[in-house]
């Protein structure tokens, strides 16, 4: 097992980036580009959201919360699924980088989950008449936040990184069941929360410019998530791989700069 750790594969396939030694510089090179894309997309998205998208007939201007609420809610669910995916890959293939990716994703997913809950509360008060109700959609989304917290607390608290990885992976995989529950809650049960405006199975029930603003903001949150995750995984790689020679060389270069 130690042998494969020491010598990263030098194959031509993309899988070679599963080696921390190769992924570390790649992540460093890619992150600024995704960050720049996130910034540019956010500016375009906000411009669409506030200056192009019209007033909503039903709700008036308050509906403009949708441009962050929905992308954040999507992202909070998607990040959890990606976390579960990396955890599964880590458990099956025994690749260290997968677990590091799962850990690097969690705080951003939790952040988006908080954004979805807070903006939802601020949107619910003027439209529904309540900041919070315990309907199936809101409750399952709150559960998602606790799953993120649980994942982070557990992986931080367990000292042995291998055991921490496994414990986190179990939370990630078991908790993934909650994601389809959140998504379909508005269909399966009667909720105060309205159904999906945008889905794969039907035409979106939104004016085109509103939809455009929402999708651009969703792309922005994608780019942001990728950038932040890459930035977060880099020091994690150095810490975990600190006994490797390439890390020593990397640290030599950093000496006196931090």
């Amino acid at each position: 097992m130690m042998k494969e750790m020491k010598r990263p594969e030098r194959g031509k396939s993309l899988f070679r980036f599963a080696a921390p030694q190769l992924f570390y510089p790649l992540a460093g090179a890619l992150a600024p580009w995704f960050a720049a894309a996130a910034a540019a997309l956010t500016i375009i998205g906000l411009w669409l959201a506030f200056f192009v998208a019209p007033t909503d007939a039903q709700q008036g201007e308050v509906y403009r919360v949708i441009f962050i609420h929905v992308p954040a809610a999507w992202m909070s669910m998607f990040v959890y699924l990606i976390m579960a995916f990396w955890s599964a890959v880590g458990l099956v293939m025994n690749t260290r980088l997968s677990f590091m990716m799962a850990r690097a994703l969690a705080p951003t997913g939790a952040m988006f989950c908080v954004v979805a809950l807070v903006t939802g509360a601020l949107w619910g008060k003027p439209t529904w008449g309540a900041y919070w109700v315990w309907d199936a959609r809101l409750t399952s989304q709150l559960l998602l936040l606790f799953l993120y917290f649980g994942f982070m607390a557990l992986t931080e608290a367990i000292e042995d990184p291998r055991r921490a990885d496994k414990a986190g992976a179990i939370i990630a995989l078991v908790g993934a069941v909650n994601v389809p529950i959140i998504y379909f809650s508005v269909k399966w049960w009667n909720t105060l929360h309205q159904g999906a405006s945008v889905s794969l199975t039907k035409a979106p029930s939104m004016a085109a410019t509103m939809l455009a603003g929402m999708l651009v903001m969703a792309l922005a949150s994608w780019a942001y998530t990728i950038a932040v995750t890459l930035w977060r995984v880099r020091p994690l790689i150095l810490e975990r791989e600190r006994h490797a020679e390439w890390v020593a060389a990397e640290l030599d270069a950093l000496e006196g700069k931090v």
């Binding site: 039903q58 529904w128 309540a130 309205q194 405006s197 029930s205």
Partner: peptide, 18 residues
Amino acid sequence: SEVLAKHDENYMPPEAQH
């Protein structure tokens, strides 16, 4: 004791609604 408004998932400008 409490009344909540439930709105639908349609978003459109007032002219379209009209």
